[in-house]
């Protein structure tokens, strides 16, 4: 009987030690982004809002806020999770990682607190959808921006 009690204790302390070790030893890479073009927030041309602060932008992209500050319904557009532009946008502008944002959407969608964003397959598609959907909000690299969309400045 005493032997049975000892084994789990040993495993337990071993597991805790491993946990601490994993935390301390394993490298945590941060990827330095090279010189890349800026990613800007873009909206449907009829949207009256001209700037958003970062927290509001995060709340809208996390699907927790459903309207523009003036009360108009917002339609969120995003690129696929694995698109490098999406990854850069979430990290640089939203201070989140794509997997965290996906988790935030799942938590909204499967708890009745919100809806999922609209997906677009690439930046050309993004520009077309944002330009043609009232209340649309998305993001584009500077070189994809033209007069069909309205650039929103971020605080």
């Amino acid at each position: 009987m005493s032997l049975f009690c000892l084994i789990p204790a040993a495993i337990r302390s071993g597991a805790l030690a491993a946990l601490v070790l994993a935390w301390l030893v394993w490298p945590t890479n941060t990827y330095s982004s090279e010189q890349q073009t800026a990613i800007l927030l873009v909206a449907h041309p009829a949207v009256t809002t001209s700037w958003l602060n970062r927290d509001t932008t995060r709340a809208i992209f996390a699907m927790r806020q459903r309207t523009w500050p003036d009360g108009e319904s917002v339609q969120v557009f995003v690129l696929p999770n694995r698109d490098p532009v999406h990854a850069r946008f979430t990290k640089e502008q939203l201070a989140a990682y794509p997997h965290q944002l996906q988790l935030a959407w799942d938590r909204m969608v499967f708890s009745g607190m919100g809806q999922a964003p609209n997906r677009v397959s690439n930046q050309l598609d993004m520009r077309e959808k944002v330009a043609n959907t009232p209340g649309a909000l998305g993001y584009l690299e500077r070189e994809y921006i033209d007069e069909s969309v309205h650039v929103i400045s971020m605080e």
Binding site: R66, G112, M113
Partner: peptide
Amino acid sequence: YGVVDYQVVSNQQRTLGLQLGRFK
């Protein structure tokens, strides 16, 4: 769950909402 969710306030500073029904 089965809710009607009404966001009463929604601006750059805050969001305030109400859910009626069966909420999680």
